[in-house]
Design a protein around this nucleic acid. Structure first.
Lengths: 190, 190
DNA sequence: GTCCCATGTGTACAGTCGTACACATGGGAT
DNA sequence: ATCCCATGTGTACGACTGTACACATGGGAC
């Protein structure tokens, strides 16, 4: 009965399970019970570690955000001030989308759930900032924000229309935002 | 008992009620019962007219799309080939957002529900096309698609971060996409 | 060694859901 | 006048949900 009486990392396993559940069945399929089953823990355990589903979603979204941030850091993208920023961004998106597409869907599904769940808003804002912030080291804040908005829009259109990613198109339109930026051009504003 | 025995337009009233429900409680609050209560019809009536909730959402999203298309047509925006397209688009968004903000949230919530509901995909695509199509009369298809992507991204960032709409910012970055367009510039491609 | 409490476990309850079904009704075709 | 069937109505069922609670257990503070 007391099969797993001390279980460090159980909280983490529950988060991982929640991410798998959302990936497989969407947010609509997320419940304390579905996560408990996926994580192979009793129902009471999920409600203990995450009193509400919002808490669980916050943890899941934050972890997904960190995963993307690591991809960003690992590639060292956006650091080389001499590279073509538009091409870098377009390539980064291509790499992200080339992998498990469910990861992208998951990111956006949790991201967009923030529309109706105030608890998720700050985490969604973190997601935006995690992209905007490194970009502000390469261009001015207005341009950085616009680049992220355009990236979001491109990804969404892709996911919604079912079309495949067109990296050349992304590079082109991202480049327009950059090329037509004010006098600052490509360098940092300060 | 038979208070309302012939009720033309009941189907329409159910759709209107569904839109109000989503606006007030979000998609998570949408159920046959909640819509039935809002429309003041018995449960069986909603299930009769819309066998599944997806059917109901399709109808609601399509109607919302049409509402925006009417706003577009009524203003005659995008028709005057001499006006500044970026300013026009930014102004149009401003007008849309200035009104009942729940309308915008509703549009995006239903729009984004398509991520997980294939039945909604075609209607989401219609939404994109309803914006892209008139734009292709003023610029080339690639630019038109990018403009819509950027608009979506700007709206989303607004809704998610809770910031207010910055029309000047929108005009500026939309303008960059247009100004840096290929040789075609502002005129139609063909 | 003793005790506390964070953690783990199992069960129960009241509410909501989609769905199905039997039955009522009356407009319009015949 | 008669009948059919699209439409309207009411109820029931099983599944699932969030939440709450009582109880078990054992690591670590003391």
């Amino acid at each position: 009965m007391t099969a797993r009486r001390y279980d460090p990392g159980r909280r983490q396993r529950i988060i991982d399970a929640a991410i798998r559940v959302v990936g497989a069945r969407g947010i609509a399929g997320l419940s304390h019970r579905s996560v408990a089953a996926e994580a192979d823990v009793p129902l009471g355990s999920t409600t203990y570690h995450f009193r509400t589903l919002d808490d669980l979603m916050v943890a899941a979204l934050r972890q997904t955000n960190e995963g993307f941030a690591e991809l960003l850091a690992a590639r060292g993208t956006l650091e080389d001030t001499r590279a073509d920023l538009a091409a870098e961004l377009a390539g980064l998106m291509g790499e992200w989308l080339a992998g498990d597409r469910t990861g992208v869907e998951l990111e956006y599904e949790l991201y967009l759930a923030a529309l109706r769940r105030p608890a998720l808003r700050p985490v969604a804002a973190e997601w935006i900032d995690s992209l905007v912030e490194p970009l502000t080291r390469r261009t001015d804040p207005v341009t950085a924000r616009a680049l992220v908005a355009l990236l979001d829009g491109i990804c969404l259109q892709m996911l919604l229309t079912g079309t495949s990613y067109d990296e050349e198109y992304a590079r082109e339109v991202l480049g327009r935002i950059l090329r037509c930026g004010g006098a600052t051009g490509d360098g940092p504003a300060g």
